[in-house]
């Protein structure tokens, strides 16, 4: 708990992580319609998918700092000798990342989706799916950040590692919005999204801890 509180404080205080991510999210939301020719009708059918893509890209921004700064300043050594196993440390950091960056992004998502042309009635669904999906992004992102530890140009490596892992939630999240737009029940897509998050919650702690141990050596 003490580690979680510290991670949350660091995420909020160190360089405006949440504000930066939300700002990037909104910038993408403005840029994409302009790049698409400024025709709202043309963008509307893919608004859900574009919003999810922007959410995924925005979730990557602050991942590089998640473990790298602790490795650089020696904090990771102290944390590794603490009362909690590294697996729980990874989980705590991912959870703090979600609360500090993922939740603000999810709260921004309805605004972005409506701006892109999604019906305002779908805002609650956008928020719900973005909350679940951003938790998955935080978990998978933590795995990518751990795997990239100690490498040169780690930020780029994180993006390369993480983006393929973001494909399932983007497909399921956008799928839920598309089904709702077409009058279908979005629950099956949301269930797949939740299942992917659970899978990430199981895999990330063990794989992330192994990657950290490797980087420390």
């Amino acid at each position: 708990m003490i580690l979680f509180r510290r991670e949350l404080a660091l995420a909020w205080s160190g360089g405006g992580g949440p504000l930066l991510a939300c700002g990037f999210f909104l910038c993408l939301t403005v840029l994409i319609p302009l790049a698409a020719g400024g025709d709202p009708a043309g963008l509307r059918p893919i608004a859900g998918g574009v919003a999810w893509l922007a959410l995924a890209l925005s979730s990557i921004l602050s991942l590089e700092r998640l473990f790298e700064r602790d490795l650089e300043d020696g904090a990771l050594d102290l944390i590794a000798l603490g009362p909690a196993p590294l697996e729980l440390v990874v989980l705590a950091k991912a959870k703090a990342q979600w609360l500090a960056v993922g939740v603000p992004l999810a709260l921004t998502a309805p605004v972005a989706a409506i701006t892109l042309g999604l019906p305002p009635a779908q805002a609650p669904l956008v928020l719900l799916s973005a909350l679940v999906g951003s938790l998955g992004f935080a978990l998978t992102g933590a795995l990518g950040a751990a795997l990239a530890l100690g490498s040169k140009r780690g930020g780029l490596l994180i993006a390369v590692v993480v983006l393929p892992l973001f494909i399932p939630p983007v497909v399921f999240g956008a799928g839920a919005l598309e089904r709702a737009t077409n009058g279908l029940d979005p629950a099956p897509a949301l269930a797949f999204l939740a299942a992917w998050v659970l899978f990430a919650a199981v895999v990330t702690p063990f794989a992330g801890a192994a990657a950290i141990r490797n980087a420390q050596g």
Partner: peptide, 30 residues
């Protein structure tokens, strides 16, 4: 996890935080 202290070249302190906060975290974590 509970029987040794490690004090390396790097102190693990976060430069943007107050000394009180860092001491509280490091000591309580130990």
């Amino acid at each position: 996890a509970g029987h040794l202290h490690w004090l390396g070249h790097l102190d693990g302190l976060k430069t943007g935080r107050r000394a009180r906060e860092e001491l509280a975290f490091q000591a309580r974590w130990a």
